[in-house]
Design a protein around this nucleic acid. Structure first.
Lengths: 347, 347
DNA sequence: TTTGCCAGTGCAATCGATTGCATGAGTTTC
DNA sequence: GAAACTCATGCAATCGATTGCACTGGCAAA
C-alpha cells in the first residue's frame, strides 16, 4: 500500500482469488467460460491488487501488439494532423495505441516503417503518404499481403492495397467549373508536388473541366508547387511577372492558395477584385483568412475514422469484409476569394 | 526464401552461428564482450537469417518498452504538431518510438494516459498540457517520481516535474511594449482559456508592461478566449460593439489573432490602419496572413527536442543530470499587423 | 446402473530475449 | 609450479500472459 514495489501480475491475482492463472486469464478475456462465482472472486481480486495487464507479456504470447503505426509525410501540416486526430480517436475506441512515424526523420523512411513490424511493435500500417518507396518496404516485409496496410488520402498506384480517399478529380473539376461559372476563361493552376498522386488527380480534374468548357490552358498557367505556402508565394512572383495573366487560379491546396495570395497582396493585388482564387482542403484557417477562402472541403474526420476502422477490421480478421477502395465525396465551399469576372472594356 | 513462414528469432541465429542464444544476445548488445571470430559468425548469421529483434520479448524481460507517450491537448493545432514533429525526430534518433494520446478522446484523459504505463506500453510521458488532472494520474501510478514525466510548453504548478518552456511573461511584456513604443496607449488583450497556466503568464506580462508604462487597462479590454480562432472572432464582435475601443490588441496566440482580424475585416475595419494586433507563436501562416502578423516566435523545434532529450535522459538513468526547469527565450517578430498610432486630431 | 457429455478448472509449455552464475581454457604472478 | 585471474561462452531461470490438453464432478440419456 505504501510503496508499490512492483506492479501486480496475473499471478498475484490468481493467488488472491485462489485459482490458477489460466482461470484468471480466461475470466478477463472470455468471462463466459468461467463460472459466476469465480468470476466475481477474480474481479474482486483484480480490484484488491490493482492489477493491470502487462502488454509485453500478452504481445509475446499472442504475437499481437494492439498498436497501429501511422506514417505521415508531414505532421506539421494541419491537414494531416486533423486526420491523425480522427485516427487516434477511433483507435482508442477499439483499444489500439497509435505510434507515429513522420517521414522526414531518418535517411530511409520505408526502412523505418518496416522495422516497426519486424520488431513486432505494430500490427498494421496506416499510410497517409503515397510516395513511399514500396519496394523497399516490401523487401523488408516480404509478401505484400503480409503487411496489413491501409493507404489514406493518397494512393499507391497499381498496388492492391486498401485505400480510403476522396474523389479528387471530380472535386478539382468542380472547383474549376465554379470559376468558369463566374465568367473566368483564363484560369491557372498551382500544382502539387511532382510524383504525388494528388498532383495528377487534381491537375487532371482541372484540365478536364477546362476542356469540357472549351477553354484552353497556356503552359505557363500551370505553376509548380509542393503543397506548402512557400511554393504558393513563389507562384505569385511568377504570376506577377507574366504579361498575359489568368484572371483566376485554382490552387492544389489551401496552403498554396494562402502563400499565393500573400505574394499577390505584397505587390498590391487584391483578391477577389483583381483575381479569384480557389483552394483545396478547407483548413480551419480558410474560413478566417482574408479574404475567406473558397475551397473544397474534404471530410477529413471521416477519412481518418474510416481508414482506422478498415485497418483494425483487417487486423481482427475480417479482411475480406472491407471494400478495397472507399472514395468519399468532397464539398465545394464558396466564400469570398472568388468573384464574378467582368472582362476588361476592350480586349 | 520463398515464403517467410515466421520471422526468425534469436534461436535461429544461434543455431546458424553454432553458439548459444546468450552469446548472440551479447554480441548484439555488448559486442565487446564477444570474441572477434564469433562476433563475425553471428553477424553473418543475422544477415543470412534476416533476424530482427522481437521487441515484445525484450520488453518483457527488461521491463522497458523503448517507447514514450506524448499527451497533447489538441493535435490539430499546428503549434503542437510542430512540437510533436521535433519530439518524434529526437526520439527516433535515440531509438524510441512515439505513442500519441490526444486528450479529447475518452471520458477520463488522465486515466488513459496512466494505463499506458500500467500496461508497460510506454516508459515515460511527455505532457504538452498543463491542465491534466494530476491527482487522477498519480492515483493510478502511485508515487509521482515513479512516472518519468516531462512537461513541455505548459507547466503543472507547484509540482516537482521536469519542465521545458519559454519565458511567457517576458515575451508577453515585450509584445505589449512593442505596441506601446508605437504610440498606443489604449491596448487590449485577448486572453487564453481559463485555468491554463499560459493564460496567467501572458496576461501577467501584459499587465506588467502596461503598468510599467503607466497605462491603465479597462476591464472590458480583456477579452475572453481559448486559443482558438473562433474565440478571436467572438472577441472581434465584442470589440466592435464597444464605445471606447483600444487602438491595439495583444492576442494570446496567433490563432486568436487571426480569428480576431477576420471578424474585424468582416465589418470593414482594416489592420493596421484602424487597429494594431500582435499574436503569439509565429505559426507558419502568420507570415502569409494578410496582413502578415507581428508575433512572438517560440522556438518550437528546440522546445520539442529538449523535452524529448530530457525525458530520454531520465529514462536512461541520468535523472539528476538534467535541470529541473529549462526556460527558452522567445523572439519578437515584427511584421505588418502593427503600425504607429496617431491619436485622433481632437480627443 | 452405466455411459457419455459438458462445464469448469488446473497443469505446464510456450512466446523471444536477457542475464546471473558456472565452466573451462589460457595467462599472469610470485 | 601452483595459485589467482581473465576471457569467452554456455546453462537455465526469468519476465507475464495465454492456451492445448487433461482432469474432475455432476447431470442427462440409455
Amino acid at each position: 500500500m505504501s510503496i508499490a514495489r512492483k506492479t501486480p501480475t496475473i499471478q498475484d491475482v490468481a493467488r488472491f482469488a485462489r485459482v490458477s492463472t489460466a482461470t484468471v486469464s480466461r475470466a478477463l478475456s472470455n468471462p463466459e467460460r468461467v463460472s459466476e462465482g469465480t468470476r466475481e472472486r477474480i474481479s474482486d481480486a483484480v480490484q484488491a491488487t490493482g492489477y493491470t495487464l502487462n502488454q509485453a507479456g500478452r504481445s509475446l504470447r499472442q504475437r499481437t501488439s494492439k498498436t497501429i503505426l501511422v506514417g505521415l509525410p508531414d505532421i506539421r501540416n494541419s491537414f494531416f494532423s486533423t486526420i491523425l486526430d480522427a485516427i487516434e480517436r477511433e483507435a482508442a475506441l477499439r483499444g489500439y495505441g497509435v505510434l507515429v512515424c513522420n517521414r522526414y526523420s531518418g535517411p530511409n523512411p520505408a526502412r523505418r516503417l518496416g522495422e516497426y513490424f519486424l520488431s513486432h511493435r505494430a500490427d498494421g500500417l496506416l499510410l497517409l503518404d503515397g510516395s513511399i518507396d514500396l519496394d523497399q518496404l516490401l523487401e523488408l516485409t516480404g509478401d505484400p499481403s503480409a503487411v496489413p496496410l491501409v493507404v489514406a488520402c493518397e494512393e499507391i498506384p497499381n498496388a492492391p492495397f486498401h485505400t480510403v480517399k476522396t474523389d479528387n478529380p471530380r472535386a478539382a473539376a468542380q472547383a474549376t467549373r465554379h470559376l468558369i461559372d463566374l465568367g473566368h476563361t483564363r484560369i491557372g493552376h498551382i500544382a502539387g508536388p511532382a510524383g504525388n498522386v494528388l498532383r495528377q488527380e487534381r491537375l487532371a480534374g482541372f484540365m478536364l473541366a477546362m476542356d469540357e468548357a472549351g477553354l484552353s490552358v497556356l503552359p505557363d498557367w500551370i505553376f509548380p508547387g509542393n503543397f506548402m505556402m512557400e511554393s504558393g508565394y513563389a507562384a505569385a512572383l511568377q504570376y506577377l511577372a507574366m504579361a498575359n495573366r489568368p484572371s483566376a487560379v485554382f490552387a492544389a491546396n489551401d496552403e498554396t492558395a494562402i502563400g499565393f495570395l500573400s505574394g499577390l497582396r505584397e505587390q498590391g493585388l487584391e483578391c477577389p477584385r483583381d483575381i479569384s482564387v480557389v483552394g483545396f482542403d478547407d483548413l480551419a484557417v480558410a474560413l478566417h483568412y482574408s479574404p475567406p477562402l473558397t475551397t473544397v472541403r474534404q471530410p477529413r474526420e471521416k477519412l481518418g475514422q474510416l481508414a482506422a476502422q478498415t485497418l483494425i477490421n483487417i487486423l481482427e480478421g475480417d479482411a475480406e469484409a472491407n471494400p478495397l477502395r472507399i472514395v468519399l465525396t468532397s464539398e465545394m465551399i464558396v466564400r469570398s476569394s472568388t468573384a464574378r469576372h467582368f472582362p476588361p472594356p476592350h480586349s
